[in-house]
Amino acid sequence: MSMKQMNSKISSQNTEKPILELKDITKIFSNRGHSTTAAQNVNFRVDPGKVVALVGESGSGKSTLAKLITGIERPTSGSINFGEWAVESLRSRNLREYRKHVQMIFQDPFASLNPHNTVLYTIVRPLRKHLGLSKQDARNRAIHIMETVRLTPVEQFMDKKPHQMSGGQRQRLVIARAIACEPELVVADEPVSMLDVSIRADVLYLIDELRRTQNMSVIYITHDMLSARVLADEVVVLYRGHVVEQGRSDEVIKHPTHPYTQLLFSSIPNPYRHKNKESVDTGQKFAEFDVPIEMKVAQDMVSNSGCPFASRCPFVMDKCLQTMPPLTGNQDHLTACYR
């Protein structure tokens, strides 16, 4: 059975309460009178066992959302509910408890592991700290987890340190550490963008397998539309902190309607482009990203009231500059565009 079919099977089973819900989240970073809007009225929910992909280019606010969800940053307004918890107002002693349930996988497997710690210690530590397991129990659990993420043969890897492992193996260790205390939600921030193409699929399938076997939810942050299509059930496309399109992943990615999503999609390097020459290169139609500095200021002013994408949009209309288009459409596919 293909992964897609399995995904749809899961979706038909789940009619439970969402595990995480973001309501009207806004985050504004201010620095000496200059403010940057990293998230603006973002709404989405994550159901148990589901994968939600946050897609966007750098600076679109996807990592800020990850920080808000994991309690590293606090939103300027809005609420984040995880079960009974209101994440936006957690105190630091509760945050530790919260992180038993919500874990993070970082982008750079070379920087997110302590170089002094062995593989076994890296996995045992959260087990001892968060779950309070005894030394022996934690060790047995850790060995089991190593088998799950296929860091095998276990005896060989147990005492290795990060520098003795390849990038893919290190990323498996980062995943092992994140799933050690069986969190309900894992936030994966670009987990494969630092890895070679030949081992990317492996790590993505591991994440998919884990969410199926452990009913874990995943927030998958990426700029790669293709992997989002393969892994995710739902997609949220972000541009400068605004949700411009969201919905079921195959629906949104196969039939993108927002010009920005279309631009993202046409930017994917595609060796098949030569083969089907008839497919038009939509990338050319769009205004350049690298606009002169003066225009950047103008862009920031636009983003305060109108559509943030207006200055790059080939289909821009007068009303785009005045008010931000609301998200419209059905539950499966919402788009914020007047077109």
Binding site: S2, M3, K4, S166, G168, V197, S198, I199, R200, A201, D202, L204, Y205, M225, L226, S227, R229, V230, F265, I268, N270, P271, Y272, N276, S279
Partner: peptide, 23 residues
């Protein structure tokens, strides 16, 4: 061949990703 197999046509109806086993 294996490297080409790691790429999928984004316009394809169904996509699945492949890797190359081993290091």
């Amino acid at each position: 061949k294996a490297l080409l197999g790691c790429y999928v046509n984004p316009h394809a109806e169904n996509v699945s990703l492949k890797g190359i086993p081993g290091t």
